[in-house]
Design a binder for these strands. Structure first.
Lengths: 121, 121
DNA sequence: GCTAGTAACTTGCGTTTTGCAAGTGATGGT
DNA sequence: ACCATCACTTGCAAAACGCAAGTTACTAGC
């Protein structure tokens, strides 16, 4: 039978900010997006090399979720996982503005508490 | 003795995006900021009335953290907690750009998965 | 100044999510 | 065909969350 797939997310309200946080409101999802903006494409094992050291179970989970939401995809949709990197979809690329705003805010406002913070590229 | 207060946050790296997520990377902190942008000031119990229904223990925790980080403050710094609302600091107000970027992204990109989502004001 | 009412938290406890380490299994280069 | 290695899974301990109920302490009215 045709399966009516539930949304991968529980939406807490109709507010777009709340809805954005329902998806991206954790410490890891936007770092995956950041890496893809920085490097263009990225293989599974490469994500683990970023300085924040995401663990593989969380990584697998988030890659699945971001794929289900249409934010990232495999570079070659038809090939197996091995040597098949991830890249941003159109929707994922549009997150650049969000990341820039967040990065700028952090650099401007957290330097007192976090002196080593660097400016965004 | 003079206490050397540790930073309220563990910074995972020097990256400003990662650092922003160290502080704000959860499902609730930015909703508190959203409410303060919307209403200007807000009392403790009023936060619980927003449609996402934050529970009081999480609320107390986040208000403490956001205060320690200088993102929010009491309207009257000298008065007791009762009837003493919260408001954004200068640094908190600058988060408006982040929220706008996030809200716009969600509205533009999540409408398929979340048909009831509304546009940001 | 005593007291009642209520805003502002705090506590306890069960559930979910995270973090770490170790394990598994497919694949593609030689 | 072999086997190194990439892409995950699994198990389990620790932390964070969610809910309901309890506690503290202003403060307005008497």
């Amino acid at each position: 039978m045709a399966s009516k797939k539930a949304s991968p997310v529980e939406w807490r309200s109709e507010c777009p900010i709340s809805s954005g946080l329902d998806i991206l409101g954790d410490k890891w999802s936007l770092l995956i997006v950041r890496d893809l903006i920085t490097y263009g494409t990225r293989m599974y094992s490469e994500f683990s090399e970023s300085p924040e050291r995401i663990s593989t179970n969380i990584l697998a989970d988030r890659l699945k979720l971001l794929t289900a939401l249409g934010i990232i995809e495999r570079v070659d949709a038809d090939r197996s996982a091995r040597n098949n990197a991830f890249q941003l979809t159109k929707s994922g690329k549009e997150l650049r503005k969000v990341l820039e705003a967040l990065g700028r805010w952090s650099y401007a406002n957290m330097r007192d508490l976090h002196p080593d913070i660097v400016s965004i590229d």
